[in-house]
Amino acid sequence: MDRPGIIAENVGVRFGGFRALNRIDLEITPGNLHSIIGPNGAGKTTLFNVLTGRLQPSEGHVRLGVRDITRMAAHGRVHLGIARSFQVTNIFHNLTVAENIRLAVQAVRRAESWTFWRGVNPDLNVEEILAATGLQARAADRAGTLSHGAQRALEIGMALGSDPRYVFLDEPLAGVSIDDIHRIKNLIRSLTPRRTVVLIEHNMRVVLDISDRITVLAQGEAIAEGTPADIRANPLVRAAYLGASV
């Protein structure tokens, strides 16, 4: 298969006595924008952590096509084309914006990362990502000095640095101003179908607008999955999550 999907089989995560995830089955179809929604504490980020390798599940398996990657570390999965951004902005605050992205690009060039006898390679493709995320003008600034919205854009830019096939974005719009929402939304949509995007987001308007497929989590279980139209019409979802506002 040219582009395998990411498959979660019967995934469960327990933290002590607490069941964060319970028997989750999920298939991420290549080229799709697949959103994961649900109320706070539903287990969305935990599922992300399992799929991207930050956390190993207590039970079940994660596969990339036919390959079992359940026990593979996060850094290893990046080399298979799986990259992520973080819910709480997680950047190198004391390094420049360009350097943040350069480090992301360099990470998938193993020989380059171990090179110690010369300076850094200026040919790494940083400009394209700076342009896509609208950060060219701030390239030389310290990342910590960026506005919150620009830091969120940098988060996405760093996830794109490895030129991944699968991009996991954890609440990329959290705390982003109205002006920036539209731009970041278009950026996310433009990633497919070349890349597969898995998105956690609370902004329902955006999720229903740009998703190909939506999975709804509640209390660690997948209670519904379908197209945006299916989800909008699902009475269970309306009761559990969407409320009367949609």
Binding site: T52, R54, A74, F92, L103, Q106, S113, V120
Partner: peptide, 29 residues
Amino acid sequence: QRVASSPLGSVLRAIRENDIRADALGYDV
């Protein structure tokens, strides 16, 4: 000094700054 201002040095600096992000970027910390 050479190591510090090389690609390897940049990885080590990234690990010092934020090892969780360095791991997520694909570096075997």
